[in-house]
Simulated scan of single mutants.
Amino acid sequence: MPFRIILKRLVVTLGVAIGVSVVPTAVQAAGSDTPTRIVVGFAAGGALDIFARTLAEKLRVSLNTPVVVENRPGASARLALDTVRRSAADGKTILISPAPPFTIFPLTYKQLPYDPDKDLVPVAYLADVPLVASTGANQPYRTMQEYLAWVKRQPSKGGVGLVTLGGTIHFGVLTLGKEIGVPLLPTAYRGAVMMLTDEIGGTLPLGIDAVGGQMELYRAGKIRFLGVTGTKRTSLLPDVPTLAESGAPGFESASGWYSAFVAAGTPAETVGRLEKAMLEAIRTPDVRDKMAALGMEMNGQSGAALRKMIQAQRAQWKPVVEASGFTASD
Rank of each mutant, 00 (worst) to 15 (best):
G167L: 13
W317M: 10
T93D: 00
M291T: 14
T25H: 14
L185G: 12
D198R: 08
D289M: 11
D128R: 04
S21C: 07
Q316M: 11
Q28H: 12
I96E: 02
E280F: 06
P106A: 11
S156I: 08
P186M: 04
L206D: 02
A99P: 12
F225K: 00
Y125M: 11
R72M: 00
L176G: 07
G202S: 08
L48K: 08
P140H: 01
K118Y: 13
L196M: 15
D117L: 03
G45N: 07
I94G: 01
M215V: 11
V132C: 11
L196N: 05
T143Q: 13
T168F: 03
M298R: 06
S32L: 07
P122N: 04
L59M: 07
T234A: 15
L306D: 04
G213F: 14
R9Q: 10
K58R: 15
G15A: 04
G159I: 13
I310V: 09
E280S: 12
L174H: 07
S134C: 14
A248K: 00
K157C: 04
I94H: 01
V16K: 13
I104A: 07
T231M: 12
K290P: 06
A89Q: 07
V320Y: 10
Q154W: 15
T284K: 15
Y141E: 01
R307M: 02
D198L: 00
S87T: 14
L306V: 10
P267W: 01
L148D: 07
I208V: 15
T266D: 00
S246P: 05
L184H: 12
P140V: 00
E57K: 14
D330K: 05
T135W: 01
T229I: 00
G136Q: 07
P285S: 04
D239P: 01
I6K: 06
M194Q: 14
A210N: 15
G136M: 08
I200F: 08
D90E: 05
T234Y: 15
G74A: 08
Q301M: 01
A88V: 12
I223W: 09
A263R: 02
E275A: 04
E275Q: 07
A304H: 09
L226I: 00
K157V: 03
T327Y: 09
S246M: 05
E179M: 10
V240T: 09
F51A: 06
P155Y: 10
R190N: 15
V61H: 13
G91M: 04
R60I: 13
A88S: 08
A328I: 13
M296S: 03
R86I: 03
L55Y: 10
V84L: 03
G227E: 03
Y114V: 14
R273I: 03
R37M: 08
F102M: 10
A137G: 03
E275I: 02
K222I: 06
P267S: 08
Q145N: 05
A137T: 10
G295N: 05
K157E: 10
S76C: 11
L10M: 15
I310Q: 02
S87V: 09
E57F: 12
A47D: 04
S259W: 01
A56C: 12
L59G: 01
L236A: 06
G300P: 12
F251H: 02
G250Q: 05
L81V: 09
S32H: 06
R86D: 07
L79G: 09
R60G: 04
I180E: 01
S235C: 09
T36K: 09
S97V: 06
M215E: 04
S32N: 06
T135R: 10
V123W: 11
K110H: 12
V61P: 00
N138W: 12
